[in-house]
Computed example of a mutant assay.
Amino acid sequence: MSNITIIQSGEAVSLDPTGSGFAHGCGVFETMKLADGQLCFWEAHWARLSYSAETLGLTHDCTIDRMQEALSELVRKDSIREGTLKISLLQDGTDTRFVIYARPTTQAPDSVRLRLDKTNPLNAESALAGHKTHNYMESMLLLKSCRASGYFDVIRLNTSGFLAETTISNFFFIKNDQLYTPALHTGILPGIIREEVIKLTKQLSITVKTGDIPVEEIEGANAFFLTNSSVGILPVDQIDGDGIQFKADSTQHPVVEKLSLILAQSEQENSQILI
């Protein structure tokens, strides 16, 4: 049976430095929002992790019920109702090992600025494309660099030159009453909130266009925003790079406001009580 290691606040865990989980980053993970003792979009997170694990050969015998019990135990022992829960599935010798722990809630500003990055394209043909793996150093280096220069994140292109994603979020923009977001075949992560936002647009009768989107298509956009499980929808008010600058009052855009409202409702409807 696959081992589940629960790391409580203030504790640490040892890893074999010769094992592939540590030495090669052979692992997948999920980062999930805990709100008022409820785990948001739990079933979708587990399904994504299970798909990646199967695709990448990280076999395990853990069921969704067993993992949910372990997460409930973690929440009870740490006495938390708000925060972020993380599941990592690591290669551990010839077996795999789950490690779970909590961290404080991510605090994000009301809106952010992005820097367009054309020098570190996302490889849509990579075997790891579309999977949330522990091979995260490239993204973290880009994130560190852009924040040192006053930006929240970078918006990346893929190797074909089309818009992709940021280092930690999916990207959307609104133009001519349509919602645009890069397609999954561009190599982006199939974000849980990205998928939920696309579903929720039906309630607002908004057309969603996915596909290969050139940078020039952003020109004239009325709003931009990012999505991830920690912050939900995060408005973007400016994108800079290579002699271009795109601005929008995204925070006040009615579609962004409405999507944020119905996403919060959907979050409650698709949560699993842990305590």
Rank of each mutant, 00 (worst) to 15 (best):
A47H: 11
L49C: 06
D78Q: 04
R48Y: 08
T63K: 11
L58G: 04
A53H: 09
L58M: 09
C62Q: 03
L56W: 10
L71P: 05
D61P: 09
L56D: 01
S79P: 10
L56E: 02
V75L: 09
L56A: 02
E73C: 11
E54M: 10
E73S: 15
G57D: 07
T59Q: 15
V75A: 05
L49R: 01
L56S: 04
R81M: 12
H60K: 08
S52D: 00
L71T: 04
I64C: 14
I64V: 15
A70S: 03
E54G: 09
T63S: 13
D61G: 13
S79F: 13
I80Y: 04
D78V: 00
L58C: 13
A70D: 00
E73G: 06
D65Q: 11
K77N: 06
W46V: 03
S72P: 07
V75D: 00
D65T: 07
R76C: 15
T55G: 08
R81H: 13
I80G: 02
L71W: 08
H60M: 10
S50Y: 10
M67H: 10
K77I: 05
L49Q: 00
G57P: 05
M67R: 04
T59E: 14
V75E: 01
G57A: 05
R76F: 11
S50H: 11
S50Q: 02
L74Q: 01
C62V: 08
I80A: 03
L71V: 04
L58T: 01
R76A: 15
R76T: 09
S79K: 10
